[in-house]
Deep mutational scan, measured.
Amino acid sequence: KKYKIKVYVKDKKTKKWKKIKEIEVDTKEEALEAIKKLPPNYEVKIVP
């Protein structure tokens, strides 16, 4: 079972969220580790 991490950042001009990358991992633990490495201003969604 794979997890997709969708990473969004808020556009300063439009104030809208835009997706900047998608990370695919195998476990939820890996997903949480990957999220920890991202800057705090990123919004993250984990999709099972």
Rank of each mutant, 00 (worst) to 15 (best):
Y42F: 11
I20M: 05
I23K: 02
K19G: 02
K21I: 15
E22S: 04
A31M: 14
K10L: 10
Y42T: 07
I35E: 01
V25Q: 01
D11M: 06
V9E: 07
E33H: 05
K12A: 13
W17H: 02
K37A: 14
V47I: 13
K28F: 15
V9P: 00
T14Q: 05
I5Y: 05
D26V: 05
Y3I: 12
Y3W: 15
T27S: 14
K45G: 03
K4F: 08
Y42C: 07
Y42W: 13
K19Q: 12
P40H: 12
K28T: 07
K4L: 15
I35M: 08
Y8F: 07
K6G: 06
E22R: 00
N41P: 06
L32M: 12
V44G: 08
E43W: 15
K19P: 05
I35S: 04
V7G: 00
K28Y: 15
V44I: 11
V44A: 13
D11K: 05
E33S: 09
E29T: 07
D11S: 11
I35A: 08
K2Y: 07
L38N: 02
P39A: 09
T14A: 05
I20L: 09
N41S: 14
V7I: 12
T27V: 02
Y3V: 05
D11N: 11
D26I: 05
I20P: 00
K16Y: 04
K45C: 14
V7D: 00
T27L: 03
D26N: 12
V44N: 01
P39M: 10
K28P: 12
Y8L: 03
I46M: 09
K2A: 11
E22W: 02
I35Q: 03
Y42Q: 06
Y8R: 00
K4C: 09
K18R: 13
K1L: 12
P48Q: 13
K28V: 13
K28D: 04
L38E: 02
E43V: 15
K4R: 12
I35N: 01
A34F: 15
K1H: 14
K37R: 13
E22F: 03
D11R: 05
T27F: 04
I35F: 03
I46A: 01
A31Q: 02
E30M: 07
T27E: 02
V47W: 12
P40K: 13
E30N: 04
L38R: 01
Y42H: 08
K36D: 07
K13F: 09
K1N: 08
E43L: 15
N41V: 10
K16I: 05
V9I: 12
T27M: 02
K21H: 11
D26G: 09
I20D: 01
K13P: 02
L32T: 07
V7Q: 00
P48Y: 10
E30H: 05
I20F: 06
E33M: 07
E30W: 01
K15G: 15
A34Q: 11
E24K: 05
T27H: 03
A34R: 10
D11H: 09
K12T: 11
K36Y: 04
V47A: 05
V7F: 08
I46P: 01
V9M: 12
K13L: 13
P39Y: 10
E30D: 08
K4I: 14
I20H: 03
A34I: 15
K4T: 14
I5L: 13
E43G: 15
K6A: 11
T14H: 05
K1A: 11
L32P: 00
K1F: 12
A31I: 14
E33L: 10
E24G: 09
L32A: 08
K36W: 03
V7R: 00
I23G: 01
K16Q: 07
E22G: 01
K13R: 12
L32Q: 11
Y8V: 00
D11P: 02
E43I: 15
E22P: 00
V25Y: 11
K12Q: 13
A34S: 06
P39D: 10
T27Y: 03
K18H: 10
V47F: 12
Y3T: 02
E29H: 06
V47N: 05
Y8I: 01
K19Y: 09
V44P: 04
K36V: 05
P48L: 15
V47Y: 12
Y3G: 00
W17G: 01
E33D: 12
K6Q: 13
K13E: 10
E43T: 15
K12R: 08
E30Y: 03
P39C: 06
A34Y: 15
A34C: 10
I5A: 01
K16G: 04
E43A: 15
K1I: 14
K45M: 12
K36Q: 10
I23R: 02
K37P: 03
P40Y: 08
V47L: 09
K18I: 14
I20G: 01
P40V: 08
I35H: 02
K28G: 04
K10E: 06
V9W: 06
D11V: 07
K21Y: 15
V9L: 10
E24Y: 15
Y8M: 02
K13I: 12
P48S: 13
I20R: 03
K15R: 12
Y42P: 02
I46H: 02
K19W: 07
T14D: 05
L38K: 02
K19F: 14
K21D: 12
K15F: 04
